[in-house]
Amino acid sequence: MNELSPLQLIFNASPAVQFVMLILLLLSVVSWVMITQRWLVLSAAKKGVQNFEHRFWSGMDLSQLYKEGTEMQRENMQIVGMETIFRAGFKEFMRLRRQASVQGDAVMEGAQRAMRVAFSREEEKLEKHLPFLATVGSVSPYIGLLGTVIGIMNSFIGLANQAQATLQVVAPGIAEALIATAMGLFAAIPAVVAYNKYSANVDSITGSYMTFSDEFSSILHRQIHSD
């Protein structure tokens, strides 16, 4: 073999190393799917927060806002993010308020509870797949290392059968083994970077949700006690 290319090395690798490489390739592809998907979701959520805050604070009547949302739902468009929290709280508030027997504080409590539930659902949606990215980031270097160790082990076993140990005998095996580590790192680095970035994004988005629900409940509170 006078010329070594990474592809040639991959195809000539031993089955165990090839298996490890396959796992790493799959992990890499899946993690990139997650990275892109999360990127789309989180950037959409951020934009959604801005949009809804803009609409909410534009002085629009709250029941008008609620009605708009209902229409959108009827058009088969899904309501997400902050608007879900708003809708859950407002719906509960209106329902409890219509019942004369319920006291003001109880109405507030019910609305807040509904918002909390909606908030935790939204948070769950945002944080989906992030643990997977974290796992890929921390585990795939080890998988790559396993492939490397197996490859080097094989090449040293081959070396033991050789009367004269030359560089040419060991080099292909070690190169092949190192490719596994390279692939592990290739899968891990983007996953770690994405995990860190996305968890910071999720924190900021959920923070803004939290702030919004507090502000909204203070508005509702004012409405109850103004009557």
Partner: peptide, 28 residues
């Protein structure tokens, strides 16, 4: 205002992502 694309992206972002990831790997 929500637009239709955002709506599609949020809940059906997977096909786009899969295409993107696979093409990225092919490119590499």
């Amino acid at each position: 205002m929500h637009n239709a694309l955002d709506n599609v992206v949020i809940y059906n972002g997977y096909p786009v992502s899969i295409v993107a990831a696979v093409s990225f790997h092919c490119l590499v």
